[in-house]
Design a protein around this nucleic acid. Structure first.
Length: 505
RNA sequence: GGGCGCGUAGCUCAAUGGUAGAGCAGUGGCCUUUUAAGCCAUUGGUUGCGGGUUCGAGUCCCUCCGCGCUCACCA
């Protein structure tokens, strides 16, 4: 035995041996079930008013979640994927031997099967009067103590697993005892389903592009590096889908989207996990204004699906997803907030000077775009609680976006914010291969200047563009952050089933 | 990576530098409609790892490990 087992576990292992000695297999291969918990209760409630109705006999399966032995009777609850049902084991019904067998060998957390007729107890709970029961899977490790009761349909917890580290490292235990955690992940699944349904209904084709890439790109992030042994080739885990999805526009697909995992080898925080889920789409012949409108429709659609309404609570504030969202031009927003007109400051030196006049420090070596981005992050974004589009970004931090006609410093790009958190990023995509190549080279220079790792130029992507790429609008959405908002969770770890944690020892 | 905080029984938490405790869970017993069932008894600890100060360390100091918050980073 590799792991050191606690007393509690030793006792349960002894019960496994004891069961086998009695000829009872504690891990049988098959189970029978006629009803889920929910269906059993509904079926019972449908007939219980009728005097002549035959008793409803059910066979339920589930996990033993509570036990209240009272001598010659025992009450218990089993829980399955649909809910809980109370079991009532009485000496008169099952016999002394079976009752003793139950109390000696069954523990909280075990999976079992129980057969009997439904009735209502004095205290009014729909309950199975058990006639036969069977072990389905013995639990060796006790579930963390979890005591709760259901008051008016709401689960009130009196004791539970609380330590975030244990909850995330042993998510299985967290899920097993915390129904609201299960509910949050059901909501996550519903959100994913709604996003796909929306994209499909808008005529977008779902595609899959490489996760292992010889050259990474499409975002400014450090990649994870891995290695193909036989090919003797280093490969990168993708940091975005962008460059592959836009290759598909060259190939003739006009509307494509992908939902999948991105990997960024950077800091971990309440809103950053090394791997995270993104939705990206590319839409031929559309521009960023159309993408903005589609974004509003998309999130309204998701809210309708998940909540049946367009408002939800996040950090104690009601957020309304009804279109249209507030729109703030980056230049105007900064002018209103700080009195700095970025249009008057075409160089980083000039802008840094204007910032200093306001008492705002600027990091040495930052480009003009970087400074503008810092100002937006610090002074505008946190104020965007209600859904807001911030639009028209500096060109030098947006190498894949198209310039605004007549304004070479600014590109047609927007980011969407809700609850003060960046949710999505989109632009009218650059489709001029010569301009794109120049931007890549320029980026390389900026990176060198900042002494950062050089970004590799994706020559194959440039070749694809030279074949001709239709004008298009592109979009990326942080799905985990959307789930955080819609489930009122304030850490990305709460919406990832298995968030990244450091190795212990 | 920086700052702050935390780490005690399976779980949730106590313990002025002076014999490590409680509730729940577990074990034994009583109890034939309970529901955080109740009552009686009882088991359970390398106080995250390692070092130091001290007559004496869960408590004070240091290294390390992990977690949380926060800052930095994140086109």
């Amino acid at each position: 035995m590799a792991a050191e087992l606690s007393n509690l576990e030793q006792i349960r292992i002894e019960k496994i041996h004891a069961l086998r000695e009695q000829g009872v297999e504690p891990f049988p291969s098959r189970a029978e079930r006629t009803h889920t918990a929910q269906v059993a209760i509904e079926a019972f409630e449908a007939i219980e008013g009728y005097e002549n109705a035959a008793p409803l006999i059910v066979t339920l399966t589930g996990r033993l979640r509570s036990m209240r032995p009272m001598g010659k009777i025992t009450f218990a609850h089993i829980e399955d994927g649909t809910g809980r049902v109370q079991l009532f084991l009485r000496l008169n019904d099952v016999g002394e031997e079976a009752l003793q067998f139950f109390s000696r060998n069954f523990d909280l957390g075990d999976f079992m099967q129980a057969t009997g007729s439904m009735f209502r107890t004095r205290t009014g709970e729909a309950t199975v009067r058990v006639e036969a029961f069977r072990m389905l899977a013995k639990a060796v490790t006790p579930l963390p103590a979890a005591k709760d009761e259901i008051v008016d349909g709401e689960i009130v917890q009196h004791a539970t697993l609380n330590d975030p580290e244990t909850r995330f490292r042993q998510r299985y235990a967290d899920l097993a005892i915390n129904a609201e955690v299960r509910a949050a992940f059901r909501t996550r699944s519903a959100i994913l389903r709604a996003l796909r349904d929306f994209m499909d209904s808008e005529g977008f084709l779902e595609v899959e592009t490489p996760i292992l890439q010889p050259i990474y790109g499409g975002a400014a992030a450090q990649p994870f590096v891995t290695h193909h042994n036989q090919l003797k080739q280093d490969l990168y885990l993708r940091i975005s889908f962008e460059l592959y999805l836009k290759r598909l526009l060259v190939g003739g697909f006009e509307k494509v989207y992908e939902i999948g995992r991105d990997f960024r080898n950077e800091g971990v925080s309440f809103k950053h996990n090394p791997e995270f889920t993104q939705l990206e789409f590319y839409w031929a012949y559309a521009d960023y204004e159309q993408v903005m409108a589609l974004t509003e429709q998309m999130l309204a659609f998701v809210a309708d699906r998940v909540f049946g309404k367009r408002t939800f609570m996040f950090k104690g504030q009601e957020i309304n997803l009804d279109p249209p969202w507030q729109r703030v031009e980056l230049r105007q927003g900064l002018l209103d907030k700080l009195g700095i007109d970025i249009q008057d400051h075409p160089t980083s030196e000039s802008l840094a000077g204007a910032m200093k006049a306001q008492g705002i420090d600027s990091p040495p070596g930052a480009t003009r775009g970087k400074l503008i981005d810092l100002l937006g992050s610090a002074y505008l974004e946190p104020t965007f609680i209600q859904p807001t589009f911030l639009y028209n970004y500096p060109r030098d931090i947006s190498p894949l976006a198209k310039s605004i006609p007549g304004d070479p410093l600014t590109v047609e790009r927007f980011e969407g914010f809700i609850g003060g958190m960046e949710l999505c990023n989109a632009f009218t995509e650059l489709n001029d291969p010569l301009d794109q190549e120049a931007r890549f080279v320029e980026m390389g220079r900026d990176y060198d200047a900042a002494d950062e790792e050089h970004h590799p130029i994706d020559e194959d992507y440039l070749r694809a563009m030279r074949y001709g790429m239709p004008p298009n609008g592109g979009f990326g959405l942080g799905v985990d952050r959307l789930v955080m908002l819609l489930t009122d969770q304030h850490s990305i770890r709460e919406v990832l089933l298995f968030p990244h944690l450091r190795n212990k020892e």
